[in-house]
């Protein structure tokens, strides 16, 4: 019973705002119907997580998100025995919980996890769709409602943190990128609560920073940063200041790039 309550907390009841870039929603729905897991690729802050939230809402499934890190162990995903009042009690990990409840399990930044940890999803990610829980001696078969989704950013990960081909080749891959000028403007207007003209300038600024790759900026301003800058502006912070703290600062520490981005900001606003 208690487990049910917990999984219910993961249900998304209000429609998250998501502006489709292409046919990704239809593709994801088709994959869901066919029981194929999803691999979401794209730069930071371009809407991968928002997309999966939207999908979970649309499919009316709870969404269990795990942010992966390099100390994440198999037990952290599957579950472990805990001691409660002198007794060993099994506690499901987020993955097991999602499988039991037929939820969507979303492993964010999967490449950050160690390779031996990611192997645990293999039987779940192919046509077997099962999760062996060794310690319980249980073989959990995923219900049709269950879906596995993982995400990673191919931009900044090193060769060492690439996904193993055996892991990759179990997914259908949806590539995300920053939306085009019009759509990104619409997103910033809606989420950042700013006027269209201001939003368009923010998006232009983002485009400028995104072309600084060869000048030493590994990634340009993400849509998320634009929205944050927009929110500050909506709170009455002057545009140049808002950009400085919400875009320039978070992007880099390099003094030359800082001043260069500041120049872009002052040219636009």
């Amino acid at each position: 019973m208690s487990k049910n309550i917990r999984i219910d907390e993961h249900l998304i009841s209000v429609e998250p705002y998501y502006l489709p870039l292409a046919d990704e929603v239809e593709l994801a729905e088709a994959a869901y119907g066919a029981g194929i897991p999803l691999l979401l690729k794209g730069p930071t802050g371009c809407g991968k997580t928002r997309f999966i939230q939207y999908l979970a809402w649309k499919l009316k499934r709870p969404l269990v998100t795990v942010s992966c890190h390099d100390d994440l162990s198999t037990s952290d995903l599957v579950g472990r025995y805990l001691i409660r009042a002198g007794e060993a009690v099994w506690t499901d990990g987020p993955l097991t919980m999602a499988v039991r409840a037929g939820a969507i399990c979303y492993l964010d930044e999967i490449v950050e996890a160690r390779k031996d940890t990611t192997v645990v999803i293999h039987p779940l990610a192919d046509d077997r769709r099962e999760l062996p829980i060794e310690k319980l001696g249980e073989l959990l078969v995923a219900p049709p409602e269950f879906m596995l989704a993982v995400s990673y950013n191919p931009g900044y990960q090193s060769v060492l943190k690439d996904l193993k081909p055996s892991t990759r080749q179990r997914f259908i891959a949806l590539s995300f990128d920053y939306p085009d000028l019009e759509r990104e403007t619409a997103i910033v207007v809606r989420e950042g609560d700013v006027e269209k003209d201001l939003a368009r300038l923010l998006v232009k600024l983002a485009h400028m920073t995104r072309s600084l790759k060869d000048s030493g900026l590994p990634e340009g301003a993400s849509t998320r940063l634009l929205i944050q800058a927009g929110k500050l502006m909506a709170k009455g912070i002057p545009a140049r200041t808002a950009c400085r703290v919400a875009i320039t600062g978070p992007l880099t520490d390099d003094p030359e790039l800082l001043t260069a981005i500041d120049e872009m900001v002052s040219s636009l606003f």
């Binding site: 995104r210 072309s211 600084l212 000048s215 030359e256 001043t259 260069a260 120049e263 872009m264």
Partner: peptide
Amino acid sequence: KGRLLPYVRGLAKKN
């Protein structure tokens, strides 16, 4: 130069 070069590259979106 150090300040302007990234600036124009940002504007031009090319090198």
